[in-house]
Amino acid sequence: MISTFEQILQGVFQRLQYHLVTFLPPLLAALIIFVITLVIALAARWVLYKIFKGLTLDQFLRRTGVAYMIDSSGRLRATRLVAETVYWGLLLTGVLVGLSVFNSDLTTQITQSFVFLLPKLVVAGIILLAGAWLSQYLGRSMLVWAVNENLPAPRRLAALVRVVIMFVAVVVTAEYLDFARNVFLAAFIILVGGAVFGVSLALGRGMGGGMHRFIEEKRETEPAPTAERSLWDHL
């Protein structure tokens, strides 16, 4: 009985020892790598903040308008963006290097998948970023134009433009990543079809009303040729 108990305990200790001997050094190594990477990432972030601040990069990017491409309010500073990207990039690299220390099938697969996917993810991110900027820019163009042309519901028109462009960006990204492409494509077709239908209805109704008013006005009186000149003759 006692010898059996001793054998079991011995087995447990042996397995524990085996696991400790097998996994603790890599775990420690991974931890050390992670800590070193964290320190490097923190240092890199600090240095980048200092360097870009010294170079007044934020001011330069703000003046040239590049900073506002990323955030229309201009609150997001380009220096911060670069520094944070580098920080998280280094940290992620540290995690992956740490995982590779274990040299198991799972960790190797994770690392390989990530390395394989990374360029695609970066490109996808760029596509989404460009789409976000374009949707902001064209949405605002539509807003300003619609206001100056005195069109009804300019904000909704601007929002529609933003949504459509952002959706195009998402569809392109999904297509690029080969991720649920049919779902996004179908949704996109439905959205565009709906938008075209809505615009057609609005135009039809608007033109009908406008035509009616025009005929009524024409019937009542001939408009003075200079009646609307004032708004356009200010130079």
Partner: peptide, 26 residues
Amino acid sequence: PVPVNLDRMIQAFVHGCRDLSEILAQ
């Protein structure tokens, strides 16, 4: 004489301030 359409100008201002508030505030 240059005719002016006061109401249209005022309307353009009111609608413009409402719809372009985001740009004007900035």
